Amino acid sequence: MTSQNMPSEENAIDVDQTDSSIATDTVAANDSGANIHISADNGVDLADIFEPYFRPDANTIVCGALDDEKVVALAKAGVELVINLQPDDELSFDEASAVEQAGMHYEQLPISGAKELKQLKILAFDNVLRQHHGKKVAMHCGSGNRVGAAIALRAGWLRGRKMDTAMERGRSHGLTKLEQEVHNRLLVPR
């Protein structure tokens, strides 16, 4: 796990998150000094299972594509909701069934790429997050990039965050290759 995947002390708590349980989360330090949330995950070390892996706060996990083993790990870690931003043609197994059989709720909001980063998609994404506020959530796409893009656009368009704040929120959730596209979209008033 690289240090860029872990939030800085200053950004460790999601400014949109009001769940006070975050402040009492026990955080352990690994050999490289990066913070990991093992105790909050029922002893499951998700950082060893997922690559890429982003942990912007105690209740949010962002990762790449899932498989059966990763779904089981998320369930053991106490995840209550899995949000999949991959379209069906990117999936290699019946993810919805696997997630539901593992006892978690499943939402799929396919975003194929930059062309689908539209306000209606971000509104639907926001709606799912609001419906499950305070729950432990795993969000994924192929690499975390689309999740980060959706989070940044949500922060800018729907939460009124300044450009720098919205972009940092996106990066903490996996935004990489779509960074310029998201920046350009945030420049356009909504």
Rank of each mutant, 00 (worst) to 15 (best):
V137L: 09
H173W: 08
P110S: 10
F93K: 09
C141V: 01
A96N: 03
E69M: 09
E90P: 01
H183P: 00
L123N: 14
D126G: 11
N145E: 08
R130Y: 05
N127H: 13
G148H: 08
N84H: 05
I83P: 02
L158A: 06
K177N: 12
L129C: 06
A75C: 07
L109G: 08
K70P: 03
C141E: 01
R146Y: 09
G174T: 08
C141Q: 01
H132S: 11
A96M: 06
A102V: 06
G156W: 09
Y106F: 13
S172K: 14
H173V: 01
Q101D: 15
K162Q: 15
G78W: 02
T165E: 15
L175K: 09
K162C: 07
G144C: 11
A98V: 09
L158H: 12
K136I: 03
Q119Y: 10
A98P: 07
K135Y: 02
P87D: 11
E181G: 01
E80S: 12
E179I: 12
E168N: 12
L178N: 10
G160K: 02
A152D: 08
G142M: 13
K70R: 15
S172F: 10
F93T: 11
R130A: 15
D164N: 14
V182D: 09
G148A: 10
E80C: 04
K177S: 13
D164S: 14
L120M: 03
F93P: 11
A75K: 04
S92L: 11
E181Q: 05
V72F: 01
A102Y: 06
F125W: 13
Y106A: 02
H183S: 12
H140F: 04
E95Y: 07
H183A: 11
G144D: 07
D89W: 10
A77N: 05
G160T: 03
D94L: 13
F125H: 07
A152K: 02
A77S: 14
S172W: 08
A102K: 04
S92E: 14
V79L: 07
A124V: 03
I83W: 04
A98G: 10
W157H: 07
A77R: 01
D126E: 15
I151L: 03
V82N: 06
K121L: 00
L85P: 03
M139K: 06
S112L: 03
A155V: 00
R171M: 07
A149Q: 06
E181L: 02
V72D: 08
M163L: 13
H132F: 13
R159N: 15
I122Q: 08
R130E: 15
L117I: 09
A124P: 00
K121V: 00
L158F: 12
V71C: 04
G156F: 11
R171W: 03
E181A: 12
A166S: 13
D164R: 06
V147F: 12
H140P: 01
N145S: 13
L175Y: 11
V72C: 01
G78P: 01
A155D: 10
T176C: 04
K115Q: 11
A98M: 12
P87G: 09
Q108Y: 00
M163H: 14
V182T: 08
A96L: 02
Q131N: 13
A138Y: 00
A138M: 02
L109W: 08
T165V: 13
H140D: 04
A77D: 07
E168G: 02
V72R: 11
L91T: 04
N145Y: 04
E179V: 11
P110D: 08
